[in-house]
Simulated scan of single mutants.
Amino acid sequence: MKVTITDWKAVAGWRWDVPDDDVCGICRSAFDACCPSCKIPGDDCPLIWGECSHVFHMHCLLNQQQCPMDRRPWVTAS
């Protein structure tokens, strides 16, 4: 028995390039909220992306030399 494909339609999926949980991996607070160090969410509590693709509140990551998620040396993405 020989099968011949005459037509096909590709199906694809997509997702935003953001963290899976939308929460900081350090304080576990939502990214649209603020970190425990801040009183009010906004520009004073920015998110910081690493070259390893992990994201944290800037204040949670202060004084960290490595990514808390994968232990690679922390390099801020440009």
Rank of each mutant, 00 (worst) to 15 (best):
V75D: 13
N63M: 07
D17C: 03
K2P: 15
E51A: 05
V11M: 09
K9F: 10
N63F: 10
V75F: 11
D20V: 13
Q66N: 15
M1Y: 15
P73A: 11
L61F: 08
W14R: 12
I5N: 04
G42Y: 07
L61T: 10
I40A: 02
C34V: 05
R28D: 07
S78A: 11
D44K: 03
F56T: 00
H54F: 04
D7T: 08
I26G: 03
H54W: 07
P46T: 01
S53R: 13
M69V: 13
D17L: 05
P36R: 04
D20Y: 14
S29L: 12
T4I: 12
M1L: 14
V55N: 08
I26Y: 03
F31V: 00
M69E: 07
A77D: 10
L61V: 08
D7R: 12
D21S: 07
Q64F: 13
C67G: 06
P68Q: 02
D22M: 10
P19Q: 12
D20M: 10
Q65F: 04
W8I: 08
S78L: 09
C34L: 00
M58Y: 07
L62C: 04
W74A: 07
C34I: 00
Q64R: 13
C60E: 01
K39M: 10
K39Q: 12
A10N: 14
R71D: 09
H59P: 07
E51Q: 14
W74S: 05
D70T: 00
I40D: 00
V75I: 14
V55L: 09
P46V: 08
D7Y: 11
D22F: 09
S29N: 15
D44M: 00
W16S: 09
T6I: 05
A33E: 15
I26L: 12
P41T: 01
T76Y: 10
F31Q: 08
I40E: 04
F31N: 03
D21Q: 01
I48K: 15
M58T: 12
V55Y: 02
V11W: 13
L47Q: 01
F31D: 01
C67F: 05
C67R: 05
W8R: 11
R72Q: 11
C27H: 04
H54N: 08
I26S: 09
R28C: 08
W14A: 13
D17H: 04
S29D: 12
R71C: 10
D17V: 03
I48P: 09
I40V: 04
S37I: 12
I26P: 01
P73S: 08
C27W: 02
M58H: 10
I5G: 04
P36I: 03
I40K: 02
D7I: 02
C38I: 03
K2L: 15
N63V: 03
C45N: 03
C34Q: 01
V75L: 14
D7L: 10
C24T: 02
I48S: 12
M1H: 14
K39A: 11
R15P: 00
G42F: 08
M58W: 05
T6L: 10
L61H: 03
A30Q: 04
V75A: 14
R71Q: 13
D43H: 09
C34K: 00
R72H: 03
T4A: 07
I5A: 05
G42E: 05
R72T: 11
D22H: 01
C52W: 06
D70H: 00
D21A: 06
S53G: 07
R28S: 09
L62Y: 13
S78H: 10
W8D: 06
W8S: 12
R28W: 14
C38D: 10
V75C: 15
C52K: 08
